[in-house]
Amino acid sequence: MSSAREEIFARLHKASTPLTADTEKPQPLVPAVAQTTGAACLVQFKEKATALACTVAELDRIQDVPQEVTRYLNERALPADIWCSTEPAITSLPWAAQTTLTLHADIARNKLDGGTSVTGCLAAVAETGALAVASGADFATRLGYLPDTHIVVCRQDQLVGGFEDVWAHIRQYTTSSAVPPRAINFIGGPSRTGDIEATLVMGAHGPRAVHVILVPATG
């Protein structure tokens, strides 16, 4: 008896033509909205992110992030419990000066409900206003989904035009035969649903609020 794979492929081969070096492939097409750079990129990102119901703050120094986190949580009367991703750029910030904040390290699945995560990102995408995050040793995917509030710190040099810039990042892995991160998520603002009477309601499963803190480029 032939295997399911063989049978399916036999049928597919019958109805298709083999791919050769000369087979013409459709060329990529990237819309202008995904190709902004520099100041225009920043302006567009802020506009699109806001349209996705994110809030955006711009700081002159990355050291001021903990203070901004305190301000944000106070303003909304949110609990001062935060869970940070473990990348050095975030952990090395002057958290201790913020005496009202409590930093937690345990990201067990039942700990994060109602909390706030503070993480970095891979890129901020001006095309859509979404933040790209990649799983890895210093970022657990759940930090973008289980807490009620997600605060994302983004360096200006992480601003990119469109999806293609993130594809380039993924290709850094594939061209050297390495495995890309398990998960790459584009987070476009708070989680939402329109499933009941097509009325938009925020906070369906994931965060109810996403706050972006833009900080200067490093170096």
Partner: peptide, 21 residues
């Protein structure tokens, strides 16, 4: 919508050192 709120790529199982997955 110009974009869905979540667009994700999944590559495989949890990798060494990953915080979850």
């Amino acid at each position: 919508q110009e974009t869905s709120n979540y667009v994700s790529l999944y590559t495989g199982p949890r990798q060494d050192g990953d915080g979850d997955g």
